[in-house]
């Protein structure tokens, strides 16, 4: 792996902290006991803003923190969460951010549709494929009830989140926060 510059490390560390803060931003849903949290926004924006390499690392560092600290939404964390029924979602995040980053960095100024599409593929497809698989394995249930419980209730909300995250990513790109292949100045 290419050595990380100090500036890249700072971005990754602060982004992982940002993920924790986003876990406390909740939109309660009227029809589900599980609220929408800001952390999925974080995963999508990590890919779109930091790019594939840094996005992957930011979420990997966040997961590593979650291995020992309660940083996931709702204040959970620890090795038990990874082995538990919801561990697949958490483990899928670095991959999701990588894919979103990869798809959006193909063009210099990605359009709304491209970011939205990348968010759907990474933030929904990758996350739920891994998440539901682990849910089914750990809770020892069939795939269909696992999808009904672990994916379907969230997908409408997640599609909206994909769109909102794409809008936010475009606005943030205008701020030129991160040199996409970062570390140029350091």
């Amino acid at each position: 792996m290419q050595k990380l510059s100090l500036r890249e490390m700072a971005y990754i560390g602060v982004f992982a902290a940002l993920m924790t803060a986003l876990g406390y931003v909740e939109i309660p849903l009227p029809f589900s006991p599980v609220p929408i949290t800001g952390q999925t926004f974080g995963v999508m924006l990590a890919g779109a803003l930091l790019g594939s390499r840094l996005g992957f690392l930011a979420l990997a560092v966040f997961d590593l923190i979650g291995l020992v600290f309660p940083v996931f939404a709702g204040g959970s964390g620890g090795p038990g969460v990874f082995a538990g029924p919801t561990g697949g979602y958490i483990l899928s995040w670095p991959l999701a951010a990588w894919l979103i980053g990869y798809l959006t960095e193909q063009v210099p100024r990605p359009s709304f549709l491209r970011i939205f599409g990348a968010n759907v593929l990474g933030g929904i497809l990758v996350v739920y494929t891994l998440g539901v698989t682990q849910l089914a394995l750990v809770a020892h249930i069939d795939l269909l009830p696992a999808i009904a419980k672990g994916a379907l209730p969230f997908i409408p909300g997640d599609l909206i989140k994909c769109a909102v995250a794409a809008v936010a990513a475009q606005r943030l790109a205008a701020h030129r926060l991160v040199p996409r292949q970062a570390g140029a100045q350091s």
Partner: peptide
């Protein structure tokens, strides 16, 4: 480990900022 330390240092700051 350094990135984890940076993240832990900034979690309270960013919570406050949120």
């Amino acid at each position: 480990a350094m990135m984890m330390t940076i993240a832990l240092r900034f979690i309270p700051t960013l919570l406050e900022e949120t």
